[in-house]
Design a protein around this nucleic acid. Structure first.
Lengths: 164, 164
DNA sequence: TGTATATATTTCATATATGTACTATCTAAG
DNA sequence: CTTAGATAGTACATATATGAAATATATACA
């Protein structure tokens, strides 16, 4: 039924061989990984006709979700969970496609401002119907109680991870 | 406090601009992504001294969790969530390092068997104490009730995702 | 048997991501 | 001022991952 069963069986074997292995933590992390890969693949497939991939989509949506459609590269990197070196490349490509504008900040001359262009906003609003459909399909018929619980617990987990 | 707050604020702005945007689904997926990246980075840092990265670690552990320490490339790809083309490269590298052996299967001559070498098992057992410590640190002081709930809900989510 | 189709794996060109070192600018303490 | 240390962003070499086509073998069935 679930693609995850073999993974659990492997964890059982692992614990026979190395009893101290923390099963629960490992299950959580492997589940996160399976889910992430699946979501990423689905999103890439959906976005391909629009000429962008999932990381580019994320950057565009971070700007779309910001007042003034503008962020600095470092902010964008944090928001999207990308490394700064990668932001340079990705935003250069988005700028080449005319979806965002790169400008020098005059408040701080080390900084660059990244702003959605009208064309960028238009592209986003053209794919949003498909994105919404995909997102709704992904949660599918999960009970809304479950979704709320899951959000609460994932936040707790993320907090814990960041507690260093 | 949490690195996730700005993300939620952006979702609020997004919904002002595009009210149909499914907030809950998007929050879940962004949480998954943040957690995944964090876990991946931490694991890579921990594994570096052992000369392997997180994907390689995963492959080794899938074999370690299998009776006979042996899988075919396709099975390994499914288990580890990697694409088959990537498995070829990764397993070649692991074979070059002497950690696994590649052999032709005589049951089906299209197939290849990938088996942990003694050296591979020894490497795994040398890093397992650090891995266990990291895993335990990652779940930290999450209540065990929460961990159980989270596992249940993530499985439900994964099932839903795979329901096509 | 022979032929069509499916499966397992690899090859290769290309796309994507990272670490590290570097430049420029800012901030603050003397 | 000016100098030391922090911060913002980028360049470049290298590492990692992907899709699509190619190769070999297996299976089904006419």
């Amino acid at each position: 039924m679930s693609s995850f069963l073999p993974t659990e069986q492997r964890l059982a074997v692992t614990r026979q061989r190395y009893p101290a292995f923390p099963r629960d933590a490992a299950v959580l992390i492997r589940l996160i990984k399976h889910i992430y890969k699946r979501v990423q693949d689905d999103a890439n497939a959906m976005l391909r006709p629009y000429g962008i991939n999932h990381p580019e989509y994320n950057l565009l949506m971070m700007l779309y979700g910001t007042e003034g459609y503008t962020l600095h590269p470092t902010e964008l990197a944090d928001a999207a969970g990308e490394k700064s070196a990668n932001i340079t490349r990705l935003t250069n490509e988005l700028a080449d496609k005319g979806l965002i504008a790169r400008n020098a900040s005059d408040e701080d001359r080390r900084k660059v401002t990244l702003t959605l262009t009208d064309q960028g906003v238009a592209l986003i609003e053209s794919f949003l119907p498909d994105v919404c459909a995909l997102l709704e399909h992904q949660v599918g018929d999960l009970q809304s109680r479950d979704v709320v619980q899951l959000e609460r617990l994932l936040k707790k987990f993320l907090d814990q991870l960041e507690r260093e």
